[in-house]
Structure formats: structure tokens, C-alpha cells
């Protein structure tokens, strides 16, 4: 069942935000149910937050493999189907095939990467949760997605870490 409440704690320093994240972990909130909102990118794991895993790197590799396979089939197939000796070179001339192989490998990688971006972006999350405009001024937001029975506990943890304000949506 999806979480129905979004609780946001607002902090004026990154340290306080990181402490809130530690507090939520200690209180038993599962990784992935709480997140940090910032107005500027922080290095991965700076708040001890759940680092989202993506699989985009697999797409160009897969595309490149498909591309080079097609290139080898295409060049070898046409040269074997029409065996014309050119310049005394072998029918399957590797150096000539390399050019096509390179082009199709890159093309496959590029197309697969674009497809990967679209696929990995998934559908937009229409439930945006609690938010505060001061986050884009440099404040740190810690947002917890939880069920009704955990709301008070989440508010308590965020308050203990020194939240300036707590919002629930």
C-alpha cells in the first residue's frame, strides 16, 4: 500500500539535515521512505541518504553490442554475397569492415542511450509530497513518506533534530 502522508522538516544548516536523516534511520524508518530536498546538488551520500540506483550505463553497452553485431553481419554478408576482390585484398577485409563496425557501434550506443534516458526516467511522480519554498534559498528539507500511524513518530524525530518548521501534506 502506498504511503499516504508526507512529512517535511525544514533545517537551516546541512548538518542539522544530516542529523535528521540519522535520526530517521535510528528510529527504524526504511531506506527509500525518507529523502532530502536541496536547492543545489550535494555530493552523493552527503546526508547519508538513500542513493538511487539507475541502470543507464547498461543501455549504451547493449546498444553498442547490437550495433557491432549488425555491422559485422552487414559487412561480412554483403562481401560474401558479392565476392569482388578489390586491390588484391581479402574478401573479408578487416580494415574496411572496421569503419562500418565503428560507425554502427557508436550509432547503436547513442540510440540506446536516448532510449535508456526515456526508459529510466519512468513516469512522472504526480504525488510531489510536502515542500517549502525556502529550499531553493539554501534551506534543507527532510521529507518522510509514511502511513498515518507513523506521522507523529516522524514529526518527533524531525523536531528532535532541530527542525525550524514541520509540514505535513
Amino acid at each position: 500500500m502506498a504511503a499516504s502522508n508526507s512529512v517535511l522538516g525544514l533545517y537551516d544548516t546541512p548538518d542539522a539535515g544530516a542529523n535528521a536523516m540519522d535520526g530517521l534511520k535510528s528510529a527504524g524508518f526504511a531506506l527509500g521512505t525518507f529523502d532530502v530536498l536541496t536547492g543545489t546538488p550535494y555530493p552523493e551520500g552527503a546526508f547519508g541518504e538513500h542513493v538511487p540506483q539507475h541502470r543507464l550505463f547498461r543501455f549504451p553497452f547493449f546498444g553498442a553490442m547490437v550495433g557491432i553485431t549488425l555491422a559485422i553481419l552487414f559487412t561480412a554478408g554483403t562481401q560474401l554475397a558479392y565476392p569482388v576482390v578489390t586491390g588484391g585484398k581479402p574478401i573479408l577485409a578487416v580494415f574496411a569492415m572496421l569503419i562500418i563496425a565503428y560507425e554502427l557501434t557508436m550509432l547503436g550506443a547513442v540510440i540506446a542511450t536516448v532510449v535508456g534516458i526515456i526508459f529510466e526516467s519512468r513516469l512522472p511522480n504526480l504525488n510531489l509530497g510536502a515542500y517549502d519554498a525556502r529550499i531553493t534559498e539554501g534551506y534543507i528539507g527532510i521529507v518522510v513518506e509514511c502511513e498515518d500511524d507513523k506521522v507523529e513518530e516522524a514529526r518527533g524525530v524531525l523536531q528532535t533534530a532541530g527542525a525550524l518548521e514541520i509540514k505535513t501534506a
Binding site: 529523502d35 530536498l37 543545489t40 552523493e44 538511487p52 529510466e120 509530497g129 528539507g141
Partner: peptide, 9 residues
């Protein structure tokens, strides 16, 4: 909203 995943993307 500035979630880590949004920054990553």
C-alpha cells in the same frame, strides 16, 4: 523539489 534522484537525472 530537489530530490537526490532529480539532481542525478
Amino acid at each position: 523539489h530537489g530530490r537526490p534522484q532529480q539532481w542525478e537525472w
